[in-house]
Amino acid sequence: MTAKFKRSDGREFDELRPIEAKVGVVPNADGSAMYKSGDTIAIAAVYGPRKMHPQHQQNPSKGQLRCDYNMISFSVSERIRPGKNRRSTEISEITKWALEPVLLLGMYPNQVVDIFIDIIQADAGTRCAGINAASLALAHAGIPMKEMVSSIAVGKLDKTLVTDLTKEEEDYEGGEGPTDIPISMTHDGKITHMQLDGKIGVEQLKDAVDLAKEACEKIYEIQKKALKDAIDMGNGEKK
């Protein structure tokens, strides 16, 4: 696990990119947040709980969560055509699954909490950044939550596990190639989202989960600080 793999940006194998987090970035929203990890920037806005439209999707027994993940056209080198595609549709749903377990929506029958995530600049790990921003925005909006959700991509480059892949690392071609494992977990260590692309043995995959737990601890502290800062400085106030 501690093999001598040299990361191109000089980070330790378990070192995160520099993180910035801030809530209250969209004044119109009920809650909002920006989460920046290295060159990846996500913003998330929460609207609701509000009445579910269309009406036939209302659930009289509990409130619902709706997520929309979107990359803006100039967030990557080759312009993406604006609008929905298969990838963003899947990530939207993954994000919902990652966050739903911590929300207490029982008291909002027939209502919906909408989360909109936009990726302003992408350098890998955008779904994780989106989930971190969304989790912050939900807390900022005052939606009842059991836990925060924190998210990180652990990767394997050739034979070495590393935390928080950049795009350059994601495209690594040496040895066994890259394995990308985005994981989201609650602060008490429950996994709400996990995906994997590549090739990795079971034992090493277990180590990867432990690495993700360590990283999520650090992210959690940053999320907590962002929320506290908003209260202390009075700039997280809502309309």
Partner: peptide, 24 residues
């Protein structure tokens, strides 16, 4: 320069109104 991936980009705020614009 709010996005490094764009050939040029800005964030414009007029009061509380905010847009970002990027050139590809």
């Amino acid at each position: 320069n709010v996005s490094k991936k764009a050939e040029g980009s800005v964030r414009v705020k007029i009061g509380k109104t905010e847009v970002i614009v990027g050139i590809k």
